[in-house]
């Protein structure tokens, strides 16, 4: 089973198996990580599984009892897709919406959606997402973030981060205190040298084909 954070909540991809087994595994997973799933919007990728209204209705009720909203079911099966539509569920992940806001001068500022997490990631936590990630908290050794966009850590970065994981060399990694196990941007990897002196906010990016870290104070902009 694969669990991914996506822009619209959580995407769970089930391994192909009997539906009862798939459903059981999903519920076990949710029970094991109650806090993670609680209140989540869930998109479920069931692959080729053929689902009828009874199955899906029962699952949706079970999930809603656990505080989880099932909003999308992805499937190669047209029967399953029809079933999903009966329940008013989406059958595809929406195209990313780009919210635009206006500043006081009336000039539009383009922004991109990001996954926002206001807690410390401990060893064993792993975030895989399309788009950007913002963490308010630390990223401890043994925790992993893999994002197709940029990663901002308002805290200490001591775990593993891969930004621009789908090849975007413009992606950056920012942290208040940068001492990661390993850092990657697009196809380039780097480890942090032993830091001397006080921690400082830094930005990591690719410059002239190398991963470089710069003090935020010296640079101030990307």
């Amino acid at each position: 089973m694969q669990i991914k954070g996506i822009k619209d909540g959580i995407l769970v991809r089930l391994e192909m198996d009997e539906w009862d087994i798939q459903r059981g595994e999903l519920i076990d997973q949710i029970n094991a990580q109650e806090t993670f799933f609680k209140g989540a919007k869930l998109a479920l990728d069931v692959g080729e599984q053929v689902l009828h209204a009874v199955d899906l209705g029962r699952l949706r009720d079970e999930l809603s009892e656990k505080g989880i909203t099932l909003w999308a079911v992805l499937s190669e099966s047209s029967i399953t897709r029809e079933t999903a539509l009966i329940y008013g569920l989406s059958t595809q992940l929406q195209a990313p919406r780009v919210p635009s806001t206006r500043n006081s001068g009336g000039l539009p500022i383009e922004g991109e959606p990001a996954l926002f997490i206001a807690k410390t990631l401990r060893s064993g936590n792993k975030i895989v997402t399309k788009g950007h990630v913002v963490i308010i908290g630390d990223v401890n050794p043994g925790a992993e973030i893999i994002a197709s966009g940029s990663v901002v850590v308002w805290g200490k970065l001591r775990g593993f981060v891969h930004a621009g994981a789908e090849g975007d060399e413009k992606a950056v990694i920012c942290a208040l205190d940068l001492s990661p196990t390993q850092i990657r941007i697009a196809g380039k990897a780097a480890t942090a040298p032993k830091r001397k002196g006080k921690p400082r906010a830094e930005v990591v990016k690719i410059q002239d084909d190398h991963v470089v870290a710069e003090s935020w104070r010296n640079k101030g902009r990307l």
Binding site: Q33, E34, R122, G124, N140, G142
Partner: peptide, 19 residues
């Protein structure tokens, strides 16, 4: 010790997840 602390961090994460 680094490895014991790393495992403790993992365990604390699991305990937090179980509330």
């Amino acid at each position: 010790e680094v490895s014991a602390v790393r495992d403790a961090d993992r365990i604390i994460g699991l305990i937090e997840a179980e509330e």
